[in-house]
Amino acid sequence: MPRTEGYSALLAGATGLVGFQLLRQLLKDDHCRSLTVLARRPLPHLPELAAFRDKLHVITADFDRMGEALADVQADVVFCALGTTIKKAKSQDAFRQVDLGYPVALGEWAKANEAKKLIIVSAMGANEKSVVFYNRVKGEAEALLSAIGVPELHIVRPSLLLGKREEFRPGERVAVLLSPALKLLMRGPLLSYRPVHAEDVAAFMRSLASAPAEQLAPIVNVYENHAITANQPKV
């Protein structure tokens, strides 16, 4: 695939499952010339991060003051890997703020600051008319982001994410343990529901960043789980 000459990037959600993989991959990717990370808490002190101190700029700030925190930032590509759970957020309103309010604010910043691409992790089943709260919020966020008019909006909808999380999620832990068996069973039409590793989602998002710009703008592309898993080893 042809590549661009390079881009500056902004990443929100770098302490999450997909976001941390994106952080590590973008730092090592020569197509990403500079990387600004917007985080609500300090990043972990890892030797691999220190090795990229000239490329990496971290802004720790209250996301409710996102515009102020990003006042001096410019980015060609904006990555959004923000997300939480009801258990962690403690209320539906707080969940909506993290999974809808902050991503939309980031999209508005991207539009106002002339970013070329916004690439966001959503979820399989996202639908603003869904009776399931989680799926409905994800769908509402997608609809609002689509209306902002960023030149390119890329929405990535993975299935169950595999990877090591900071918090314990019993349901996901069971699914992870069963994932080898699930992959064997999920063939044909069920391939779309195969669990996917967070690092593969990050790699897919990164490929979208360095792909040539679309000819028509604004455009909205939605990638379902099978697009992410298409290049994974078959079992």
Rank of each mutant, 00 (worst) to 15 (best):
F133Y: 06
M66A: 01
G139M: 00
L144C: 06
L35V: 07
A69C: 02
R40A: 02
H45L: 13
G19K: 01
P233Y: 10
R169G: 11
C80E: 04
L23A: 04
R173V: 14
F63S: 04
E142V: 06
Q25D: 00
G149R: 08
V98Y: 09
E142P: 02
V196R: 05
V58S: 01
E114Q: 15
P218H: 09
E166G: 12
L182P: 07
V196P: 07
N225P: 01
A202I: 00
R53Y: 05
P42F: 02
G107E: 12
E142Q: 07
V98N: 03
L145M: 03
A175N: 08
V73S: 00
R206W: 04
D29P: 05
K117P: 05
L10E: 01
E142L: 04
V37F: 06
A181Q: 11
K111F: 13
L35R: 07
E224V: 11
N135C: 12
Q97H: 15
A50S: 09
V174M: 14
A227N: 12
V132G: 04
I86W: 08
A181S: 13
E108V: 12
Y193F: 13
Y193R: 03
K90E: 14
I148W: 04
E114V: 13
P151H: 08
A175C: 10
L100Y: 13
I59N: 02
L35N: 06
K88C: 08
E5W: 08
F133M: 00
L43I: 03
R173H: 13
K117R: 15
H57R: 09
V174W: 14
D72C: 06
T84A: 07
Y102E: 09
L178Q: 10
Q232V: 12
L70I: 05
R157P: 05
S210C: 14
I155A: 06
V98K: 10
K28N: 09
T15F: 02
A213G: 08
S8W: 00
F79V: 04
M66H: 06
A230W: 07
A14D: 00
L153K: 03
A71E: 15
P103H: 10
L118Q: 09
R96F: 10
P233H: 09
R165N: 08
L22R: 00
Y7E: 01
V201C: 04
A175Y: 06
E68A: 05
L145I: 01
A211I: 13
R3Q: 14
R96M: 14
R65E: 03
D29H: 09
M205V: 05
G16N: 03
R157N: 13
Q74W: 10
N231V: 11
Q92W: 13
V121R: 03
V18P: 06
G107S: 12
L145K: 04
R165H: 08
A112T: 13
G139C: 01
A71H: 07
P180S: 10
Q97M: 13
R3T: 14
Y7W: 06
Q21W: 02
K28D: 11
T36A: 04
A227P: 00
L38R: 04
V77K: 06
S8H: 11
P189R: 11
A9Q: 07
